[in-house]
Amino acid sequence: MKKKYEMKVLSVEFIAKETIEMELYQPEVSKQTVPGQFLHLLVSGFTLRRPISIAKVDPQAGTVTILFKIVGDGTKALAAYQPGMTINVLGPNGNGFSIDDVKDGERVLLVGGGIGVPPIYHFAKRLSEKNVDLIAVLGFQSKDYVFYEEAFKEIAETYVVTNDGSYGYQGFVTHVFPEVGAFDQYFSCGPLPMLRAVTTELKDSKGKVSLEERMGCGVGACMACVLPTVDNSYKKICSDGPVFSAQEVIL
């Protein structure tokens, strides 16, 4: 069973339309976390926890930064938390991206869509410590929703795509792939339609995907977030994932 923590809220900031960046303090969690994992937050007044991806960690400062989009009453209530308050957190949960999967000298494509961008950034920061060439393709609804572009540009060749063309390239993340050129493998996180498009477009490439999904327990007990696999079995997104081989699961 995953351990529960009381994490102190250090800051809460709108960084794009309906998008909140929240910095939390809990040294033990900051030292345990790997890219792609999530925290399961208990928001005051709600029964079910909210799974929120981790965007950054600073083990020296003991901090964990999460990003989330306000999409309902639960995330609206979470956005109202103030510095100094505490949040009951289960985690870090799930199996994340493995730094060891990437070898020195490789060219790596990172694809994030919307609130799937934060875990990709966490992974990109860790990969930037190695001798690798990073390309990041980031998809958003419109200019108002864009975030972390400058942070990515510091460590990766970066392309921004908006659905309506109000910023960067117009269309979907897959529309930029011809600009990217050859790469050794890819890693992607975002909404399911985007992941389907990415894995279809890159079907001949080695890759891993991280799925966003509503969850019940968050620890693999309730079976609310199962995903079919190519070998006719099922995987639990919360505990077996959220990161899977693109060739392993049926999206």
Rank of each mutant, 00 (worst) to 15 (best):
A156F: 06
I135P: 06
T158G: 08
H175A: 14
L195D: 02
P92W: 01
F147V: 06
G96K: 04
E157V: 12
M215Q: 05
R126M: 12
S210E: 09
Q170C: 11
T174I: 09
I155Q: 05
V173I: 11
L192K: 13
Q141K: 15
T200C: 07
E149H: 12
V108L: 08
G207S: 12
K130Q: 11
Y169N: 04
V102C: 09
D101Y: 10
Q185F: 02
R196H: 09
E201M: 14
E213P: 04
H122P: 02
D184Q: 06
D100T: 13
F152S: 01
V176N: 08
R107V: 11
Y159K: 10
Q141A: 13
G114M: 04
L110A: 07
G94D: 03
Q170P: 08
Y169L: 11
L138W: 08
V176W: 13
H122V: 04
G114Y: 02
F177R: 11
V173C: 13
G171H: 05
N131V: 09
I99N: 07
F123H: 02
V137A: 10
H122M: 06
G216M: 01
V146D: 01
A151L: 13
S166M: 12
R214V: 10
S188T: 09
R196E: 03
L192Q: 15
S188Y: 04
L110H: 04
K143W: 11
